[in-house]
Computed example of a mutant assay.
Amino acid sequence: MQWHQVLAFVAAVTPLTLLPGTSFTLVTQQVIAGSRADGVRAALGSVCGLLVHATFAAVGLSALVMSSAQALTVVKVAGGVYLVWLGVTTWRSTHRGAEPATRRRRPRLPWSRLGGFGQGLFSNVLNPKAASVYLTLVPQFLTTDHAIAPQIAVLSLAHIAVALVWLLFWSSVVAAARTVIDTPRFRRGMSRVAGAVLIGLGIRTATAR
């Protein structure tokens, strides 16, 4: 795998990582309810959850390519179509009215009584959005010229680095501010960036030779 492929993956996954989601919300909640250390533990648990998804993807995609090299092409095309659809729906969601944060009620999760690390781990392992990164985005950067598992390992380490840097930075910001900066404008802006990236990746896959 070439460095330019890794950098391209980092450029693609970064806006998706910055998009407020489960890990972002959990780290924010942990810092506000406890301390920055609690947020750090939640961040570490979240990136360990990414390792679980990467392992499953490495085993599944490696077996798929071993059975048929053309199968990876099918996975890429299907993933590209899905990425376009996901990008369009993500972009369209920015035009919907956002419910005020003070009125939102978050369901109590089964692992809510665990420590920050355990909450971060289980919330990400059971997060379908995190799984979709390895089922739709990662295959776009794989080649059949080399073993699949090492390529996924490199991409997952890059993803983990981006996620960990962002979550640690965010935990410091929240600890310093002690207020929730997750405003509707911020969410809309990040959703639009993520939607544009997803659509671009889907089109790239559809037009690639």
Rank of each mutant, 00 (worst) to 15 (best):
I160M: 08
F117A: 01
F169A: 15
A149M: 11
R106G: 00
A101G: 10
V162C: 07
R106A: 04
L109F: 06
V165F: 14
R108C: 08
G120Y: 04
V154G: 01
R96L: 10
I160Y: 13
P107A: 09
P110R: 01
A101N: 07
V154N: 07
F169D: 00
R113L: 13
V165D: 00
T136A: 15
L164M: 14
Q151M: 06
R103P: 00
F117P: 10
P150M: 05
R104K: 12
L135M: 06
W111Q: 01
H159W: 09
L137T: 09
L142E: 01
L164W: 11
P128T: 07
S123D: 09
S123P: 05
L137M: 09
T102H: 01
H159Q: 09
Q140Y: 13
A153D: 03
T144R: 06
F122M: 00
K129E: 01
A161D: 03
T136L: 15
G97W: 07
V138Q: 11
R105L: 09
T143A: 13
A130V: 08
E99F: 01
Q140K: 00
F117L: 03
V138R: 06
A147K: 04
G118I: 02
G118W: 04
E99N: 00
W166S: 14
R104D: 04
R106E: 08
A153I: 15
W166M: 12
I160E: 11
P110S: 12
Q151N: 05
R113M: 12
I148E: 09
S123T: 00
L135E: 09
F141R: 05
Q151L: 07
Q140G: 06
P110H: 04
R103Y: 08
T144N: 09
L135Q: 04
W170S: 11
Q119A: 10
I160G: 07
G116N: 12
V133E: 10
L137R: 06
W111D: 02
P128Q: 07
R108E: 05
I160L: 12
V154Q: 05
P128N: 12
L142S: 12
L109P: 02
V125M: 10
L157W: 11
A147M: 05
T102M: 02
P150E: 03
W166T: 15
A153K: 13
V162F: 00
V133C: 11
G118F: 04
E99A: 09
I160V: 15
H146V: 11
S123I: 02
Y134D: 03
V154M: 06
V165P: 00
V154P: 00
H159V: 06
W166K: 10
A131T: 12
A158Y: 11
L168T: 06
R108L: 13
Y134R: 01
A131Y: 02
P139Y: 04
G120Q: 07
P100T: 07
L157A: 12
G115V: 04
